[in-house]
């Protein structure tokens, strides 16, 4: 690319910038201000310097929550992405059943987070929930309020139920955009099913899959409502993810300074990961000449 880049068009996004200033930038600046001060309420602040940042960096609580968060995001990505691709590959390509599947798949995506949480909270209950009751009758001990493994399985399965269809729909859109000529060429070459997937479908889906991974990663990394409704972060701290811990600290304990420092570090990690994903995505597009 030898053309010089003209950046003047950025001025056209000025109205959005003003809007974002009020909805995001100014609150973020306030958080930065909180992070270097201590308060006991009544809008009185005392200078604390970088104390909260060092406190947070030394706190096991934050590192533990980060660890759980990374495990959670890793696990749901490892399940949802392959499962989503598998579902997309097996969906009808056209006709009534294609539309039917698409509508069916988008249903979980339309349900608000707290409702999903409530559904699963009741679904898993041993006394009245279908899942909990059935497992109990089968002789399997399942109690997500007391057993760490059960709590984790519930939260993970709930997320998989809620979001796999997003991955599937994105992958399906990617698959639909592949011209028939590719498949015909593969057939002439007597390519195996695996070869068709590996060398035609996967590369053509790479762009949308990147978006799917990015969306799912970001969403799971910031997950709050669903585990909060189902387990409340328990048993103990077993499913206390970053944002649940953050809310506990900021609103439960009213430790605004440490919570502000915590949230800034959280923000930096998210910014870094988003940038990496974005860069990879843009470079994939450039390589493909899209």
């Amino acid at each position: 690319m030898n053309k010089t880049v003209n950046q003047k068009a950025w001025f056209l996004v000025l109205p959005v910038l003003i809007l974002v200033a009020f909805s995001a930038v100014i609150p973020l600046m306030t958080v930065v201000n909180y992070s270097v001060q201590d308060t006991f309420g009544r809008n009185e602040f005392f200078w604390a310097g970088l104390e909260w940042f060092s406190d947070m960096l030394d706190s096991d609580r934050m590192w533990d929550a980060l660890g759980r968060q990374l495990i959670f995001s890793g696990v749901i990505l490892a399940i949802e992405i392959p499962l989503g691709i598998f579902v997309a590959l097996n969906m009808p390509k056209n006709g009534f059943w294609a539309s039917f599947c698409l509508v069916l798949m988008s249903l979980p995506l339309l349900i608000p987070w707290n409702v999903v949480g409530t559904i699963w909270q009741i679904f898993g209950r041993v006394d009245i929930g279908l899942l909990g009751y059935t497992l109990d009758k089968l002789g399997i001990t399942y109690n997500y309020t007391q057993d760490i493994t059960a709590a984790w399985i519930t939260v993970v399965v709930m997320d998989v139920w809620h979001w796999t269809s997003l991955v599937a729909l994105l992958a399906y859109a990617g698959l639909q955009s592949i011209p028939d000529a590719y498949y015909q060429a593969a057939k002439i070459d007597q390519a195996s099913r695996w070869a068709v997937f590996r060398y035609i479908e996967l590369p053509k889906m790479a762009g949308v899959l990147m978006i799917a991974i990015l969306l799912r990663f970001m969403d799971s990394f910031m997950i709050y409502t669903e585990p909060f409704v189902v387990t409340g972060g328990g048993p103990g701290n077993a499913t206390t993810f970053l944002s649940i811990d953050l809310v506990k600290m900021a609103i439960g304990q009213f430790d605004l300074g440490p919570a502000a420092a915590f949230s800034l570090m959280y923000f930096l990690v998210i910014l870094l990961i988003s940038w990496v994903f974005y860069t990879v995505m843009v470079n994939l597009d450039k390589r493909d000449g899209v």
């Binding site: 600046m29 306030t30 930065v32 270097v36 809008n43």
Partner: peptide, 15 residues
């Protein structure tokens, strides 16, 4: 602006 709890160092930082 007092609700934003500005301090000189953070003002310089954003400046």
């Amino acid at each position: 602006m007092s609700w934003m709890a500005w301090t000189m160092p953070t003002a310089i930082f954003f400046g």
